[in-house]
């Protein structure tokens, strides 16, 4: 079931990209000896005698750490690192790739890196860190035996996540006041101001976060999608589905017969499957997709589903959304 969070992002098994060409120990923090401690996403305090330096991190978490200058020794991702929205464009030389498919981690290779810390988001809905959820290979879950695991919580806000990783980076000895970090925060603040302005101008605009698939339509439940909670917080009316799947509350599952259950003015389309032509294709393929008036009117925009970790990425996504909101008609769905 859990495979549905990265629904369309399931990826190829680590084809052992064997990035072992470069020299060892890319972890740079010459930080003080310790002792070290960090409050994990689940509220527990994790302690160590020495500040960890050899870190294995999940994709987005690794990108967050790298934005503060901390380079992990290994990364496991849910899809190929070339297409992962967090990792694409980053310089990954010297970092061992331990997995490029959800639920599959090469623990043997991970062990050979002798990690002293594993960094992975905490998912409150599943009460597990990324890479240890239900559905992950039992062999891959042995990752947790290698080192303590910490991560910020995929809780109520992406900002909490971003701050959580800033704090973690700080505790690991990174400088968090570098000018480029301040710059991306500033860019985020500007984007946010414009976003709020756009939503305030359209008080009746409702949006629905969706992910159509061949045999059903998934409607996202904002309660378990921090970025959607943020949008709601900032004035955008993201519709809360009324009967999320009890076993996997990230989504409400609608059969294609019920595709038009909600009539939003703008559709936030799961970014993992969004393309420019997706709306037209689904309209042709599924007789009821265009029963959603917003879909018929082409009012769709990509939604950064479950992957944001940094101010910089959030700023970029907010800018795209602001444009769509400005262009949207707040009376389509009514």
């Amino acid at each position: 079931m859990r495979t549905w969070r990265p629904i369309l992002a399931v990826a190829a098994l680590s084809l052992s990209l064997a990035a072992c060409g470069s020299t060892d120990t890319p972890a740079e923090t010459a930080a003080s000896a310790g002792p070290w401690q960090f409050t994990n996403g689940n509220g527990e305090v994790v302690k160590a005698d020495k500040t960890p330096t050899r870190i294995i991190a999940h994709a987005g978490e690794a990108a967050a750490l790298m934005s503060f200058g901390i380079k992990p020794v290994g990364i496991y991702a849910d899809e190929p690192v070339k297409t992962d929205p967090n990792l694409k464009g980053l310089d990954l030389t010297g970092i061992e790739i331990l997995g490029e498919e959800w639920g599959k981690i090469d623990v043997e290779k991970a062990a050979s890196l002798r990690p002293d810390l594993i960094v992975a988001d905490w998912w409150p809905a599943e009460k597990a860190h990324s890479g240890l959820e239900e559905g992950v290979d039992e062999k891959s879950k042995k990752l947790k035996e290698l080192a303590p695991i910490v991560g910020a919580s995929q809780g109520k806000s992406i900002l909490d996540l971003a701050e959580g990783y800033e704090n973690l980076a700080k505790s690991l000895g990174a400088k968090v006041d570098a000018p480029e970090i301040a710059a991306s925060k500033k860019r985020f603040e500007d984007a946010l101001a414009k976003f709020k302005e756009a939503t305030a101008a359209k008080p009746n605009l409702t949006v629905l976060a969706m992910s159509p698939s061949d045999d059903k339509v998934y409607v996202a439940n904002p309660a378990y999608a921090p970025e959607l909670l943020d949008f709601q917080q900032w004035g955008l009316k993201v519709v809360n589905p009324d009967t999320p799947d009890p076993g996997f509350p990230y989504w409400e599952n609608l059969s294609w017969e019920n595709a038009d259950k909600y009539q939003p003015d703008l559709i936030l389309w799961d970014g993992r499957s969004y393309t420019e032509t997706a709306n037209a294709e689904w309209g042709k393929k599924q007789p009821t997709w265009f029963a959603i008036k917003a879909a018929k009117a082409g009012a769709v925009v990509s939604w950064p589903a479950y992957w944001l970790h940094t101010y910089g990425h959030f700023a970029t996504e907010l800018e795209k959304l602001t444009t769509a909101i400005k262009a949207a008609d707040e009376n389509i769905g009514s």
Binding site: L8, V10, L15, P80, D214, W256
Partner: peptide, 20 residues
């Protein structure tokens, strides 16, 4: 295992269904 697209598309066949 080496091709994500193939895996995604194959999901349509993994469980028999009359839907869609």
């Amino acid at each position: 295992m080496t091709n994500v697209d193939a895996l995604n598309e194959l999901r349509f066949w993994q469980v028999g269904s009359l839907a869609g």
